[in-house]
């Protein structure tokens, strides 16, 4: 039995300890906002926050997640919600499938660096692929979010 803390709530699961966190979240616990894209940590669709930092949940054995604070796209944190608002305002998504991961990576970046410059945004966001090609809008929404936060 493994106990996980996801979005502020504890979940106890009986699974193969090597099962990646991604599949525990999606298939066992049932939060489907976190996406499967490649299974190899290459595309970032499966990003979740682990103690505030973005990690590829497709690579993280669930047994290593005990005692960690996991936040998914369905969770609530200040930066995530501010970014989600910007995403909607700039009409960022096309198909939307990669956007959970993009938002989590961006949240992680702002958690560590509230005022990223362009190179820092490019560097951080290079962990994620968007096949529809919404990168320009993602960058725009991150900048918009930072501006809004700095105003308030």
């Amino acid at each position: 039995m493994i106990t996980l803390k996801i979005n502020g709530k504890e979940h106890t699961v009986d699974v193969d300890p090597t099962m990646p966190l991604l599949w525990v979240i999606r298939d066992i616990i049932g939060f489907t906002g976190t996406k499967f894209g490649c299974g190899k940590g290459l595309c970032g669709a499966c990003m979740v926050l682990m103690d505030g930092n973005a990690v590829n949940s497709c690579l993280m054995p669930v047994s290593t997640m005990e005692g960690r604070e996991i936040i998914t796209i369905e969770g609530e944190t200040e930066n995530l919600q501010a970014l989600q608002k910007s995403w909607a305002e700039l009409n960022v998504p096309q198909c939307g499938f990669c956007q959970s991961g993009q938002l989590i990576t961006a949240t992680s970046m702002l958690n560590n660096n509230p005022n990223p410059n362009e190179d820092e945004i490019n560097g951080n966001m290079s962990r994620n692929i968007c096949r529809c090609g919404t990168y320009t809008r993602i960058k725009g929404a991150i900048n918009h979010c930072v501006e809004q936060k700095n105003k308030s």
Binding site: F31, T32, G33, T34, T72, I73, E74, Q84, W87, A88, N91, V92, P93, C95, G96, Q99, S100, L103
Partner: peptide
Amino acid sequence: PSIDVENLSNGS
């Protein structure tokens, strides 16, 4: 904007 934009941004 897409009719789905919020659902596509919040995992639902």
